[in-house]
């Protein structure tokens, strides 16, 4: 499942469901990063089954992105769409807050 270099795509034919475009910035194999990836994947599989697009970026590999995306604290998850854009930092262990950030807390 974990596709380190690229996309983890889940398509679904269900039209009513919006596609969540997520971008997770991590730093190599730091404990926080690993936890964040794991936590997020679990969460997405549970709540956004087949309707999310997750891009995992190792900021060490693409340093110039740090400024463009205004990265400060890591791990950082940016919800690009649906709008509004939301940013979440941390290892994604606080599921409630992550869901709130993704706008899924009411579900």
């Amino acid at each position: 499942m974990a596709n380190q270099d690229g996309f983890l795509e889940n398509y679904e034919s269900d039209a009513k469901a919006t596609i969540y475009v997520l971008r997770l910035f991590i730093t190599g194999a730091s404990p926080n990063s690993i936890r964040a990836v794991e936590n997020l994947k679990t969460l997405c599989e549970k709540h956004l089954t087949n309707r999310y697009k997750l891009e995992i970026i190792d900021i060490h590999q693409q340093k110039e992105l740090a400024e463009n995306e205004n990265v400060i604290a890591l791990p950082l998850l940016i919800k690009k769409s649906p709008g509004p854009e939301r940013r979440m930092v941390g290892d994604m262990s606080d599921t409630k807050r992550v869901l709130k950030g993704l706008g899924l807390s009411n579900n």
Binding site: F25, T27, S30, N32, R35, A36, N39, I59, H60, K63, E64, A66, E67, V71, I72, A73, L74, P75, L76, L77, E85, R86, R87, M88, V89, G90, D91, M92, S93, D94, R97, V98, K100, G101
Partner: peptide
């Protein structure tokens, strides 16, 4: 940095700032 835009969801560090600065 805008607090309202950021949701803290657990352990984090400022590695991003370091990388940015280093870059």
């Amino acid at each position: 940095i805008d607090r309202s835009e950021i949701e803290e969801t657990g352990e984090y560090d400022l590695e991003g700032l370091f990388i940015r600065l280093g870059y």
